[in-house]
Amino acid sequence: MTGISMPKTTRAHAERRHALAPGPDDAFLAFSKAVFAPGALDARTKQLIAVAVAHVTQCPWCIEGHVKAARREGATGSQIMEAIWVAAEMRAGAAFAHSVKALDLIGDETTP
C-alpha cells in the first residue's frame, strides 16, 4: 500500500478510548472475545471469515489484525488468499445483483 500512511494503534489509544467510554469499551471487548471463541466454528475458520470481511469493509487495521490472528490459528497463506478471493467475488457479486435496479429504471430499451 503506497501513498496513505495509516497510524498504528497503541496502548495509549486503547487506554484513552477506555477512559472516555469504559462501559461500551468493556462491552465491545467482551463481545469480540465471545465472537472469536471456538464454538460451532473453530477459531481459524472465524479468523478466515474476519479476513474476508475486513477486505470487503476495507479496514486496514482489521486486515492486519485478522491476518495475523488467522496465522496464529494455523491458517496458511493459501487459505488466507482464498478467503480474500471469496470476499472479492462477494463484493463484485453484490454490484452485479444490484444491477436489476438499474435495469428496472432503464425500462424496455433493448439497444445499447
Rank of each mutant, 00 (worst) to 15 (best):
S99R: 11
I49L: 14
A50N: 07
D26L: 12
E64V: 02
A43L: 04
F96L: 15
A52E: 04
T45L: 06
M90W: 06
S32I: 01
G3L: 08
K46W: 01
Q47R: 09
A21I: 06
I106S: 05
K68M: 06
H66F: 04
P22D: 07
I84S: 02
P7C: 08
E89V: 11
S32E: 07
A75H: 04
A102G: 05
L105V: 07
G107M: 07
F28Q: 00
G77S: 14
M6H: 15
E15T: 05
P38Q: 11
R16I: 09
W61I: 06
R72Q: 12
E73N: 11
A70Y: 08
V53E: 04
A95E: 08
E82I: 06
H13R: 00
A70I: 00
R17P: 00
G65M: 12
Q58D: 09
D104T: 11
G65K: 08
F31E: 04
M81V: 10
D42V: 02
A27T: 05
R11W: 05
A102S: 11
S78F: 09
D108R: 15
A21D: 14
K8T: 09
A87I: 09
G74I: 06
E73R: 12
M81Q: 13
V100T: 14
M6C: 06
V53C: 02
A97M: 14
R72V: 03
P38K: 11
L48C: 02
P38L: 02
G39T: 03
A52W: 01
I49C: 08
A92D: 12
V56W: 01
A102R: 10
A94G: 10
A102V: 11
L41H: 10
V56D: 05
A30D: 03
V67H: 00
L105I: 04
I4A: 13
L29N: 09
D108N: 15
L20Q: 13
K33H: 10
P112I: 14
V51H: 07
G3I: 06
V86Q: 06
E82M: 06
A34K: 05
P7D: 08
A54F: 04
I106A: 10
S32M: 11
R91N: 11
G74C: 10
W61C: 01
P60A: 14
I63M: 14
T57I: 15
E109P: 00
